[in-house]
Design a protein around this nucleic acid. Structure first.
Ligand SMILES: [Mn+2]
Ligand SMILES: [Mn+2]
Length: 556
DNA sequence: TGTAGCATCG
DNA sequence: TTCACACATTCTC
DNA sequence: GAATGTGTGTCTCGATGCTACAAT
């Protein structure tokens, strides 16, 4: 296992971090120059005019906590810091943080330094026992701000990085998200993460217009604000912001749509708790993602608008977005009709194979593990499978399809999969390849060796679906030794139609057994834990395809 | 003075 | 470090 | 049955040095 050795084959070149940053700048310029705002163009010009030391310092500091630093903490062998600082200041890429409020500066001082300042500026304050945060609070309260500022300036020189907004935009344009950053390069280069060598095409950009970029950033920021407000129980500003987003709903670019949706969902929920149903309804009506329609229906019912609620149930039932919507539409409309006094025939409960077993409860061990141990006592071999098993099998079986060249699917070299992996378009766009792979699996009574070859060849390569932990490998092998290709194809056919929707709800345990077929799946249910819609759906689907799946109820 | 928790780096 | 997922607990009807 | 809370994994690592804090 070469990838487990954490040491790099070769030390990284001096200034590697600047090389990486300039790779990003170069890529962004090449792909997105037409979308860059003046401030971003100016940054590029200013940055390129800097000496190598100044550029290095800027990038070094970009990946540190910041954005304000003590100048005495900027020490790098490969950089002449003083010259670099001056240069950055002259280029307005940094300043001395002169206008920054003291409460953001004081934490940069050591506790001992703060203690000395207290002794000097306000000897009455007892500083020896106080914690750092208290010292800062004490100084801010009891010392004249001007005195305090001068005392700070006597002790430390500061440097504040500027122009971080353009840098954020560059990061967004390069990665297509804000969850990845410059460390991706290093992690790859020292062999910590290995990425598939997929084709990078230039033909479809993640951000087609400047508006897409701005909307993405703006709504991401708004969403963060809304979360802050709500967790501080400040409903009004949250609603105000959500309203502002709602008013411009049809002008937001599609890439920002998800953030808007989250805002509506969260704010709607908070309003519901306050009993402000009408306002909540407004937001739910504009949200697309599950469970917006369910919330809408429930609110309508609470408002006594029963006919509308029933009608909405019909709509949801006619075009459900996931399994929870199917179950909800059926149950809730049933309930409403019954409350209205309409004659409703009780739904026939579908029979599912189930059994029951009494176990000794043990703290620190999950119920699935206890069930597994109990079954092992009877000689039944098995393991905890849940979602990882099927996702991994699918990831291996469809490796080439997942990383196949598709317009817009791969935007940079650090992806765990194509951008549309979790959407229905994954299958529709690659329908030919998926159909062929399913067909070949159906005709393969023993797909194990083929999949394990892929396992060996790709071992450790980043793939959103595949788990590479060593201890899982024998489990993978056991399941492949027991399942035939048509079993896999049956599951993959459903799974591939919408990974986001269908990747949940697989049964807890895989169990080897005698008989035909020589395996089964078990969903373990402790008292009080009820079957969820997606679990029901998978259990029924598995049984329909000749894959035994049953429910094991546990009593303590 | 011991140490847990962090920031940093590769 | 957030996010998705599964499970547990508490509340309400 | 519904709402709310909790825990876990995700392979995003390991070594190093610094600091705050509290135990001595
Ligand atoms: Mn489970
Ligand atoms: Mn279970």
């Amino acid at each position: 296992m070469p990838e487990s050795s954490a040491t790099p084959q070769r030390p990284l070149p001096v200034g590697y971090y600047l090389d990486n940053f300039e790779t990003v700048l170069g890529t962004v310029r090449e792909r997105y120059e037409d979308l860059l705002a003046p401030a971003e163009r100016e940054f590029l010009v200013a940055f390129e005019a800097l000496s190598i030391d100044a550029r290095r310092l800027y990038v070094r500091l970009l990946s540190r906590k910041g954005p304000i630093f003590r100048r005495d903490r900027l020490q790098y062998q490969e950089i002449a810091e003083n010259l670099a600082c001056d240069e950055l200041e002259a280029a307005a890429l940094a300043d001395r943080a002169a206008d920054v409020e003291l409460r953001s500066i004081l934490p940069l001082l050591l506790r001992a330094e703060l203690g000395a300042m207290v002794a000097e500026l306000n000897p009455d304050g007892v500083s020896s026992q106080m914690r750092k945060a208290d010292l800062i609070g004490f100084l801010l309260e009891s010392v004249d701000p001007e005195h305090l500022r001068r005392a700070v300036e006597d002790r430390v020189d500061l440097l504040r990085l500027r122009c971080l907004e353009p840098v954020l935009v560059f990061r967004l344009l390069f990665f297509g998200n804000l969850s990845q950053d410059w460390t991706e390069f290093v992690l790859r280069d020292i062999g910590l993460v290995r990425y598939e060598n997929y084709e990078l095409r230039r033909d479809l950009r993640r951000f087609p217009t400047r508006q897409a970029v701005d909307d993405y950033l703006l709504l991401k920021q708004s969403r963060g604000l809304v979360y802050e407000y709500l967790s501080a129980e400040e409903l009004e500003p949250a609603v105000e912001l959500a309203d502002w987003v709602l008013e411009r709903l049809d002008q937001w670019h599609g890439v920002a749509r998800r953030s808007a949706d989250r805002i509506f969902g969260e704010v709607g929920r908070a309003l519901e708790r306050q009993g402000e149903f009408h306002t909540a309804l407004r937001f739910y009506e504009s949200a697309v993602e599950v469970p917006a329609r369910e919330r809408r229906t429930r609110v309508l019912a609470k408002l006594g608008r029963i006919a509308e609620a029933i009608e909405l149930c019909e709509v949801i039932g006619g075009d459900p977005r996931d399994e929870s919507e199917i179950v909800f539409a059926r149950r809730f409309s049933h309930r409403l009709r019954r409350m209205r006094g309409e004659p409703v025939r009780p739904a026939r409960r579908r029979q599912r194979p189930e059994s029951r077993r009494r176990l000794a409860k043990r703290d620190g061990t999950v119920v699935e593990q206890l069930a597994l141990e109990s079954l092992a006592c009877e000689g039944k071999q098995g393991f905890f499978a849940e979602n990882w098993l099927w996702k991994s099998l699918f990831g291996l079986a469809f490796w080439d399809t997942i990383f196949a060249s598709v317009a817009g699917a791969f935007q940079h070299p650090f992806q765990f999969g194509p951008l549309d992996l979790s959407s229905p378009s994954f299958r529709t766009v690659r329908s030919q390849a998926v159909a062929e792979r399913l067909e070949s699996l159906r005709g393969d009574p023993c797909p194990g060796p083929d999949l394990m070859r892929t396992y060996e060849a790709k071992r450790g390569v980043a793939n959103r679906l595949v788990s590479w932990q060593d201890e899982l490998r024998p489990h993978l092998e056991l399941s492949l030794a027991r399942m035939a290709g048509h079993h896999l194809a049956w599951v993959f056919d459903r799974l591939s139609r919408d990974l986001r929707r269908y990747r949940r709800g697989f049964p807890d345990l895989f169990l080897a057994r005698d008989g035909e077929p020589s395996f089964e799946f078990i969903e373990v249910k402790a008292p009080g834990d009820q079957l969820r819609p997606e679990q029901i759906a998978w259990i029924d689907y598995l049984n329909e395809g000749g894959i035994p799946a049953s429910i094991l109820h546990i009593d303590w």
